Computed example of a mutant assay.
Amino acid sequence: MSHTDTPSPTDTASRPDPRRTVRPRTAAGRSVLVLGASGYVGRHVCRAFTAAGDRVSGIARSAPADLAGVHWRPLDLVAATTEDLVRCLAGADVVVNAAGAVWGVTDEQMHRANAELPARLAEAVARTPRRPRLIHLGSVHEYGPGPYGIAVAETFAPAPVTGYGRTKLAGTEAVLAGCRDRGLDALVLRITNVSGPGTPTGSLLGMIAAHLARAADADPDGPPPLRLTPLTAERDFVDVRDVAAAVVAAARCPDSGLVINVGRGETVPVRALVDRLIGLSGVPVEVVEADRDGGRRGTADWQTVDLARARALLGWQPVRDHDSSLRDLLAAALPHRRPAAAGR
């Protein structure tokens, strides 16, 4: 799907910024602390830093068994005080906040995880004598509906329309305020929709992969249909391993106090992505969409991000296409079923 890759005329990614803090960064051997390390993105971030030769510690309520080489510190981050976080930060060169809440939680729980925790973390970093680089993982939902046909640049004014988007924006603003008011060395990566191995079942693609896994063992008369809400949207999907690579690049970046978009920089119709996932699985599942009420597609159904700043400041761009991401999602969800051939 083509799109108009038009940055805002006020974009300052290519010009000097007064918030930049130039500081030498070693290529490897850093002490890296990942908050929310047992989560979907957090696990891949841990693996990426470990592969880069860094010493990785993970903070979560419980440690998964499939992450080798990560030192675990059990802690309920939502309940943790600023003092708890200060103690955890001791000795860290890089801190990644991959914690957050999106599915199956109350509004209060979402606010505590997405807004209050980043604010406490920014305060904790400010209190740490040897201040680490902080990388906060934000969300494309902070922008709200994007203008149809235009890739949203970081200078577009955020206008979130969901509770998730509003709480994530509050967390981002707390981190940026710490940079502006207290001299924190931090970047915010604003991430689009994520796919790839381990996609959670709370997400659309993860839920479909779980349905396909059940359908593969269904009655020989045929698997049950997959009933979904209308799939009218076109979205920017990026592989989780590309996201992790962007986080590692952000740890080396000398710039500070900025938001940087992370995505593929292109849209894909969600229905086409769903159909491709099912086709690659080889499971003959029928998709039944709910009535669309005769509604006409609006600008809220289309969104992608501009990647000029990520390319310029991080030297990063996505390398995995949708097929490889979907295949690896299926390989993890249906380990005993081989995905269909590439041309199918």
Rank of each mutant, 00 (worst) to 15 (best):
D5P: 03
T6N: 08
T12A: 14
S14T: 12
R15C: 05
P18W: 03
R19I: 07
V22T: 11
R23K: 13
R25Q: 14
T26P: 06
A27N: 00
A27F: 04
S38Y: 01
F49H: 15
A51Y: 01
G53R: 01
A63V: 02
G69T: 10
A79P: 03
E83H: 10
L85Y: 00
L85P: 02
A90M: 01
G91W: 09
D93P: 03
V94S: 00
A101W: 05
D107T: 11
Q109S: 12
R112T: 00
R112D: 14
A113P: 00
E116W: 04
L117V: 11
R130G: 14
L134D: 04
P147D: 12
V152T: 15
E154Y: 01
A157W: 08
P158S: 04
E173A: 09
V175A: 00
L176F: 10
G183Q: 07
V188D: 04
R190V: 15
S195H: 04
P197Q: 05
G198K: 02
L205I: 06
P223D: 02
P223E: 12
L226A: 02
R227D: 07
T232D: 12
E234G: 04
D242P: 05
C253G: 07
P254D: 09
D255E: 13
R264N: 12
G265S: 11
E266N: 02
P269S: 11
D275M: 07
R276W: 06
I278G: 11
S281C: 11
G282V: 10
A290I: 01
D291Q: 05
T299N: 09
L307G: 08
L313P: 02
G315Y: 12
S324I: 13
L326N: 09
D328T: 12
P335N: 09
R338H: 12
P339N: 05
